[in-house]
Amino acid sequence: MSRLQVNLLGVSMKNPVIAASGTFGFGEEYRAFFDPGLLGGISSKGLTLHGSKGNGGVRVWETPAGMLNSIGLENPGVAHFIERELPLMRRIPSALLCNMGGHSLEDYEQGAAMLDKADIDILELNISCPNVKAGGMAFGMEPATAADVVRRVRALCHHPLLVKLSPNAPDLIAVARAVEEAGADGLSLTNTFLGMAIDVDRRRAVFDNVYAGLSGPAILPLALRMVHQVCKAVTIPVVGLGGIATWRDALCFLMAGATAVQMGTAGFADPLAMPRAIEGLEKYCEEQGLQNILEIRGIV
């Protein structure tokens, strides 16, 4: 058994590094730089039932050691994914995480039912989407609404269920516990932090939606603290993400209790960030005499 091999929700992965949703397309975009099959897993671009054209106006904005995005979940929809993207993505020998969100409970249910029959390894549920029918507050903000969507999806989908938490929830620990209780097999956190940018020359908000999601190295300490707290509060596995750019960053999340990590924004800056992190983790295991990387899991 390889030193980096990990088991996530019953799925064997060759290493604990997963490409984060929305930063790696459906697995093909970085092929010119490295073989995506080197990754432990790939989380698909976030899907919604009917797809979306995404947001207008400025969509990305660099910030100190990070970036804000307001892509608006541009995606081709669940049916298109199953028919067109999935067969290609399946050819990549990495764990296949399908990331799905929704703007109503019915959307989640219908999407989950469609994906139940699809050949995916893990369903990663994005509960950071605004609930259009309840004033636009995201499902993941409150324990009750988060648990409701997880319970409904759980009932319709037999795939291992990884629920991606929003760091913007006023009581993240309560949401994490409620989601575990509702039947999630694992949690991934964090999604982006709600932020803002103002164009002072034009005296207006940069983004049409005013607020946007912050990612990149700037959020690492915040995300790490949350992963550490959540790992202590739940018994299901946690996938840590938020600003990871190097193998050392990845180790922080594993030491904080995560079973695997996801990387995203760092790959925008350096397309080889993920393969470099995997190599670094491998070397670390060798140097430290670890039989498996997860021997250091949760030691902090």
Partner: peptide
């Protein structure tokens, strides 16, 4: 266009 990745992954530079 403003873009983050340059390789087609981030969808920051979508045009209609």
């Amino acid at each position: 266009a403003r873009m983050a990745c340059g390789v087609g992954a981030c969808l920051g530079c979508s045009c209609a």
